[in-house]
Structure formats: structure tokens, C-alpha cells
């Protein structure tokens, strides 16, 4: 285990709300993490605290083994691209990139220029006058070209169209393959990033709901469709996280993967299996959780997965 970030019992309380509630997790070196969860789940707060832009109420955060707060040795190795980053009013993108070049020791000007071309960023237009997408693109360029050892992207795609988002994903992957580093990507476009990420951290209502490899997460649940009675027999004793019916046909999503023999037996009864995408799984898990279960299914299932 070679973790670049360690978080222990981190709690962040605002005046009227708890943004993070006793959260603990590790981030491994040189992997792409998907920090997933609904709006307001605590993703931005977590990233702000990890980059020392915000302070924890209690708990401990270690980045490269040290507290990042007011720690230039640590901060100079991080880059945090905020969804709502503010720039000086009179600055234009050229100014912003010139500044980034000053502060990120691994900055790659060639890459920056390619990306500026890709996203067609108008360098001399005041940042205030950029479209939402162009503003996001400025952040994406800084995040990628900085090549920081740990890069945080907080919903970096707002206002970017599908083409521009694909450019971002492709560029991210290609550059990461060549220059491996740790990347935390927060997103709620889960389908779009699910193949990109190596690990999933799912946050919901200030708590970690899932901390799995993306591969394991994809096989965490199974969907079975068929005659209602047969489906009920098949899922008997399993933890069902979602169920819907149309006439006599029922579709049920349950946790776990049946053995090949069980699958064969179920198939013989006319039941059909479908994979559960990461997005479906996450939607189901968060829905189920907000429905008021006190124990998270990911936790209760952990034992059987390992």
C-alpha cells in the first residue's frame, strides 16, 4: 500500500449542516479515482480540505505524510481545479496560464498549448466574458498541463458539450498513461467516467458509501428479469436493492453475483441476467440509503466480497 492521501475521522460542520461526517479513506498513488455522489454529498468539501483551501472541524488529513495546511512543500505538488474557480476580474486566459506556469513545477507548456487549441480558448478575452464551457476549459487546461502529482478535478466539465468532454477524457487518459499520477475526478456523469477510473469513492450525505475498485464495483450487483414468481424464488435470501414490475414481468437488482451453477439454474427457469452499470448501482445504492436504511448495503456486503 502506497497511499499519498490518508483521511481519518474527518468531520466538517458548517453552521447549519454537516458536510462530512466522520469520514476515513486512503488514496493510492498513481491511480484515477472517481469521487462520486450527488450534489451536496460532500465531494467539494472533501477536496477543499485535502488541498488546504478549507479547514476540518475535526479529524486528520495527511497528504504525502504531512498536514497540507499552510504547507508549501505539500501544496506545490497538488493542483485543485474547482468547478466555480474565481479569477482576477481583469485577467484573461493568457494571464491565468502564465500564472500556472509560475507555480506548477511540472507544468508542460507544449501540452497546454495543444489543449488551448483543442478547446479553442480565446486567450485574450477577459475571463468574465468567457462562456461557461470556455471557463471550464481554462480549468481543465491548468489541471492537465500542471501534471501535479495529485490533481483534483471537481466537476470540471460544466458547460462543456459532449465533444469537448470527450476531448477532456481522451487527453486525460493519454497523458495519464504517459505520466502516471494520482487523479481525483468528481463527477455525476458516472457513465461517462466509469471506464476511466480505477477506484470508486462514493460519498452520500457526508459519508463514504462505497470504496471499491471500479472492477469490483461493477460486479457488486446483478440484475435479473423474468416471471415474477421465478424471480422471487431466485432472489430469496439476497439483499434486493431495487425492484420494478410490468405485468407479470419483474426486474430485480440484488447485491452479489450468483455462481455459474446458480446462474445456469436460473437461466433454465427462463430468467435473464443483465449487468448492472456503475451508474445504475450508484443510483440504486443512494436511493436505498436515502430511503432510510440504517446500515449501508456496501458495508453489510463487504465480508462476502473479500
Amino acid at each position: 500500500m502506497n497511499s499519498v492521501i490518508q483521511v481519518r475521522n474527518l468531520t466538517k460542520r458548517y453552521k447549519d449542516a454537516v458536510a462530512l461526517d466522520d469520514v476515513s479513506f486512503d488514496i493510492e498513488k498513481d491511480a484515477i479515482y472517481g469521487l462520486l455522489g450527488r450534489n451536496g454529498a460532500g465531494k467539494t468539501t472533501a477536496m477543499s480540505i485535502l488541498t488546504a483551501q478549507n479547514l476540518p472541524t475535526s479529524g486528520e488529513v495527511r497528504v504525502f505524510g504531512e498536514n497540507p495546511y499552510e504547507n508549501a512543500r505539500v501544496l506545490s505538488r497538488l493542483c485543485f481545479v474547482r468547478e466555480s474557480q474565481k479569477y482576477p476580474d481583469d485577467a484573461n486566459p493568457r494571464h491565468a496560464f502564465a500564472a500556472a506556469r509560475l507555480f506548477f513545477p511540472r507544468w508542460d507548456q507544449g501540452l497546454a498549448e495543444e489543449l488551448i487549441d483543442d478547446f479553442q480558448i480565446p486567450l485574450k478575452r477577459t475571463i468574465k466574458k468567457l462562456s461557461r464551457g470556455q471557463l471550464s476549459a481554462v480549468g481543465v487546461v491548468i489541471g492537465l498541463a500542471s501534471r501535479a502529482e495529485v490533481t483534483f478535478f471537481d466537476e470540471p466539465y460544466l458547460g462543456l458539450d459532449a465533444v469537448a468532454r470527450q476531448i477532456f477524457y481522451d487527453r486525460l487518459l493519454a497523458d495519464y498513461a504517459e505520466f502516471p499520477r494520482t487523479i481525483l475526478l468528481s463527477s455525476h456523469l458516472i457513465d461517462e467516467v466509469s471506464n476511466l477510473i480505477e477506484r470508486v469513492l462514493l460519498i452520500d450525505a457526508g459519508r463514504i458509501l462505497m470504496d471499491e475498485s471500479a472492477e469490483d464495483a461493477r460486479s457488486l450487483a446483478t440484475n435479473v428479469v423474468g416471471d415474477a414468481a421465478a424471480v422471487d424464488r431466485a432472489v430469496n435470501g439476497r439483499e434486493v436493492i431495487h425492484r420494478e414490475s410490468l405485468g407479470r414481468v419483474t426486474s430485480v437488482t440484488f447485491l452479489g453475483r450468483p455462481e455459474a451453477s446458480e446462474r445456469a439454474a436460473m437461466a433454465a427457469q427462463g430468467l435473464e441476467f443483465a449487468p448492472v452499470s456503475l451508474q445504475q448501482l450508484i443510483v440504486r445504492l443512494t436511493q436505498q440509503r436515502s430511503a432510510g436504511r440504517d446500515r449501508s448495503p456496501a458495508e453489510s456486503q463487504e465480508g462476502s466480497l473479500r
Binding site: C79, Y87, D89, A99, L102, F104, A148
Partner: peptide, 14 residues
């Protein structure tokens, strides 16, 4: 204007 941007540049407050 510049403080929030300085944070994006990974600077300490000091």
C-alpha cells in the same frame, strides 16, 4: 480578486 486564484495556484495563505 487574487486570493481565490492564488489558492488554485496551490499557494499557502502566508
Amino acid at each position: 480578486m487574487t486570493f481565490p486564484f492564488s489558492q488554485a495556484m496551490s499557494l499557502t495563505r502566508r
